[in-house]
Computed example of a mutant assay.
Amino acid sequence: MDEHSATENGVDGGEGNGDGSGDGKALRRGWTTGACATAAARAACGALFSGDFPDPVTVTLPGGQTPAFALAWTERGEGWAAAGVVKDAGDDPDVTHGALIRARVSRAEPDQGVVFRAGEGVGMVTRPGLPVPVGEPAINPVPRAMIRQAVAEAAALAGEAPDVVVEVSVENGEALARRTMNPRLGILGGLSILGTTGIVMPYSCAAWIASIQRGVDVARAAGLDHVAACTGDTSEKAVVARYGLPEHALLDMGDFAGGTLKYLRRHPIPRLTLCGGFAKFGKLARGLLDLHSKRGSVDLDWLADRMAELGAAPDTVAEARAANTAAQVLSIAREAGLPLADRVAALAQRTALDTLDGAPVAVEVLVTDRQGTIVGTSGWGAP
Rank of each mutant, 00 (worst) to 15 (best):
G173W: 05
V367G: 03
V218H: 04
C230D: 00
A177N: 05
G22D: 01
A348I: 04
P110H: 13
P383L: 08
L130M: 09
E309H: 05
A219Q: 09
D290C: 12
V95C: 11
M181S: 14
G51D: 10
F278H: 08
D2M: 01
A108P: 12
A304N: 03
G376K: 06
V168W: 02
Q65P: 00
A333S: 08
R286A: 15
V95G: 00
A313H: 09
R370Q: 11
R42A: 15
V85N: 08
D23Y: 07
A322Q: 10
V240W: 13
G129V: 06
E78Q: 14
V375E: 05
A322H: 03
A6F: 11
A327G: 15
A118M: 12
T368S: 10
V363H: 09
A285I: 06
L185F: 07
Q112F: 00
T74A: 09
T7C: 07
E167N: 10
V151F: 06
G337E: 00
D52T: 15
G121Q: 02
L245A: 00
G20Q: 00
Q149V: 00
G381P: 13
A40R: 07
L261V: 10
A44Y: 14
E136F: 14
A44L: 13
G186S: 07
G376N: 12
V125R: 03
T273D: 04
A89N: 13
G24H: 01
A175R: 11
T231P: 04
V298W: 01
S331Q: 15
W31A: 10
E171N: 01
A249D: 05
S235I: 01
V363F: 09
R295M: 13
S50W: 04
D23K: 08
G189H: 04
G123I: 03
R271I: 09
V166Y: 03
G51I: 07
R242G: 06
L330N: 04
D342S: 07
A108C: 09
L288Y: 15
L261I: 10
F53N: 08
